[in-house]
């Protein structure tokens, strides 16, 4: 591992200023992804700016009835928060479905959003990978592709985003607050992560040195009726093959509003807008869910090993919607 300097930032401004002192500096959250990547040789920072102890570890009520989640809030604390469990269960469920108890105690909200793909070629510095080394080629397109994308991929990269939490946040229309050398800005969670296109080396739209300070949840009353369903190779402690987060507003026996987000299938958490449109103002029923899921997957393309994900996601979407509408429909 390359030697590096370590600094604990006292406040947001200091963190951004420290980051500006070196082009290869990295922010350090819980370290559960970055330390691994430094050990594997994927990341070679000369400076770590520790932001895990910044005063960003609170979950605050917003005046509009929403919640502000500080970037340094640990995944375990966020999942256990009473307000989140009651008002945004999809988020609690997504977090609890990820990693393990002892990792969730370390992992932070900011770090979770910016964790990088688990594509095995990305993690192996001896193989070509456009995300790690632009222009070197993609080993997955004709290689082992069981865990790779079925939607939104490009000829340059077919990796998927691994975060469960981000999928939950996408179904809840979260907004990410970012501070950088140029000031503060907000980015919707849907805009934060990118599709790979020609530039798979860029996971997100963040500019160098930008720090995530918080994630805001809007007050969506019907998010109380939301959940997260994850399908994986074993019952616990494994990344998603596919996952679905959904929130449904039922009114007089019809779907007044709905949000659906999918994980494990694309370079970014995938918002199923086409399916959502087909469901709004309809009476919930399984055949309808099936049609909506099929429509969303219309443009899905399988690689050599991941064709199973297309029916698996369809079934998972139908089952999630059924779970949310069953008792009252």
């Amino acid at each position: 591992m390359r030697p590096f300097d370590y600094r604990r930032a006292g406040d947001v401004d200091e963190a951004i200023a420290l980051m500006g002192t070196s082009p290869t500096a990295r922010y350090l959250g819980g370290g559960t992804n970055l330390v691994d990547h430094m050990r594997l040789g994927l990341e070679t920072p000369d400076l770590l700016v520790d932001v895990s102890r910044l005063p960003l570890a609170d979950i605050e009520d917003l005046p509009d009835g929403g919640l502000r989640i500080g970037a340094a809030v640990r995944n375990s604390d966020l999942a256990a928060d009473r307000r989140v469990r009651e008002r945004y269960p999809a988020l609690s469920r997504a977090l609890l479905a990820g990693a393990s108890g002892q990792l969730r105690n370390l992992a932070t909200t900011g770090g979770n959003l910016l964790q990088r793909t688990r594509c095995p070629y990305f993690q192996d510095v001896t193989t070509p990978c456009n995300k790690r080394e632009p222009g070197s080629g993609c080993s997955a397109i004709e290689g082992h592709s069981r865990n790779h994308a079925i939607l939104g991929a490009s000829d340059a990269c077919v990796a998927v985003h691994p975060s469960d939490m981000a999928v939950g946040l996408l179904a809840l229309d979260a907004v990410v607050r970012v501070h950088g050398p140029g000031g503060e800005r907000t980015i919707t969670i849907d805009d934060l992560h990118r599709l790979p296109g020609e530039h798979p080396e860029r996971d997100t739209v963040l500019e160098p040195g930008e720090l995530i300070t918080a994630v805001d949840l809007p007050p969506t009353p019907f998010a109380r009726r939301s959940t997260y369903r994850k399908v994986r190779e074993r019952a616990s402690f494994a990344f998603a093959l596919v996952s679905v987060a959904a929130a449904v507003d039922l009114h007089e026996g019809r779907i007044a509003d709905v949000r659906i987000a999918c994980g494990g299938i694309a370079h970014k958490p995938w918002r199923a807008r086409r399916a959502e449109e087909m469901l709004v103002s309809e009476v919930p029923d399984e055949a309808l869910f099936e049609r909506a899921a099929r429509a969303e997957l219309d443009e899905a393309r399988a690689l050599r090993d991941n064709g199973f994900k297309i029916p698996l996601l369809r079934h998972t979407m139908v089952a999630t919607l059924r779970d949310l509408t069953l008792e009252t429909s």
């Binding site: 350090l28 559960t32 375990s76």
Partner: peptide, 16 residues
């Protein structure tokens, strides 16, 4: 148990 909570110690730097 790190500051009272269970945590893995392989993915955190001692300096942190």
């Amino acid at each position: 148990l790190l500051d009272g909570r269970r945590a893995t110690t392989c993915l955190t730097f001692a300096v942190a």
